[in-house]
């Protein structure tokens, strides 16, 4: 099944005066795909999102959204994009309902939809209170509700789970997965790796403006060559029968490459008869740290 390309970023560079924030970023995002945009503070994530929105222009390279090169005059494209900026606190003197109605009106969304989404996001009780009195998480929920109000085909979320309690984050990702199932493309820029892991199709890791790695979680595991840890009490007795894997056994665990995971598991189950073992795959956090450490290694 080929899905249409929603965002196509080709070799994008961005400089602010003499500071180079992004150096050659490329990726494609298709309808129904979710992508995590990861990187340290100041890596250039928000700049990339702003460029996809057409708020700032790339210094080099090209960005296409729905096949159009976006600039301010392309309103039909903007109508079909939902955006949650980082650190948005909204209009203090308006109520939650008024804020949402305002943004709904600007996108031609009707009142019923506003009321419905307020209920869905658990803001119905607080809808007539001034936003000034909202907690950080409530504002964040309001922001997310704002982003998906018009049911856009592309959603850009800049740190959506900041300040959210665990259940609220879970709700947000559930919602993201629902939208994905409807064919929506989503880019999530975040520092909360454990939350985003398992909720995205692929990740793009940027560091100091460069793409350090990109691909699905499995591809990243393979590419980073981080070891899988296989742990079992029975391994201790059998470790002389581990054939070629003996050297990988230390600290009570087998440390094997992701690529030979299947071979090793076949060996210990079929030849050694060990079925009682635990498998610790590298997490997104491990992968992220691996690439960031590598970057720091390069720079001394």
């Amino acid at each position: 099944m080929t899905r249409s390309v929603v965002v196509k970023v080709t070799d994008v560079h961005k400089s602010y005066q003499d500071f180079v924030a992004l150096k050659g970023v490329s990726f494609e995002l298709h309808a129904g795909q979710t992508m995590a945009l990861l990187g340290h503070n100041g890596a250039g994530k928000s700049s990339l999102i702003k460029m996809i929105l057409g708020l700032i222009q790339p210094s080099l390279g090209e960005i296409q959204v729905y096949g159009n090169t976006l600039n301010a005059s392309q309103q039909h494209v903007q109508l079909d994009i939902g955006y949650l900026p980082e650190n948005v606190s909204f209009y203090e003197k308006l109520s939650g309902y008024e804020v949402l109605s305002y943004f709904a009106a600007l996108k031609g969304v009707n009142r019923e939809k506003v009321l419905q989404i307020l209920v869905e996001f658990g803001l119905a009780d607080a809808q007539h209170r001034l936003v000034k009195t909202y907690s950080k998480g409530m504002r964040q929920r309001l922001g997310f509700a704002q982003a998906i109000l018009s049911e856009p085909r592309l959603i850009l979320l800049d740190e959506p789970t900041v300040g959210l309690d665990p259940l609220a984050s879970e709700f947000m990702y559930r919602k993201i997965n629902e939208l994905k199932a409807k064919g929506c493309a989503v880019i999530i820029c975040t520092h909360e790796l454990s939350l985003v892991e398992g909720n995205v199709d692929f990740a793009l890791i940027v560091g100091q403006g460069k793409v350090l790695a990109q691909g699905s979680l499995n591809e990243l595991k393979q590419a980073s060559n981080l070891k899988i840890k296989i742990k079992s009490a029975a391994l201790e007795q059998h470790h002389q029968h581990l054939n070629g894997f003996q050297s990988c056994y230390f600290q009570g665990c087998l440390h094997v490459d992701y690529g030979i995971k299947a071979d090793v598991i076949r060996h210990i189950t079929q030849h050694l008869g060990i079925y009682d073992f635990s498998l610790a795959e590298p997490s997104l956090n491990d992968i992220y740290q691996y690439y960031i450490n590598q970057l720091e290694g390069q720079h001394g």
């Binding site: 929105l53 708020l55 301010a72 309103q75 900026p85 606190s89 909204f90 209009y91 203090e92 943004f103």
Partner: peptide, 16 residues
């Protein structure tokens, strides 16, 4: 700008 809504407004189908 301080409340983050300027960026948001500009991402809407609105001209300056």
């Amino acid at each position: 700008e301080e409340s983050g809504t300027l960026l948001l407004l500009l991402s809407y189908p609105l001209t300056r």
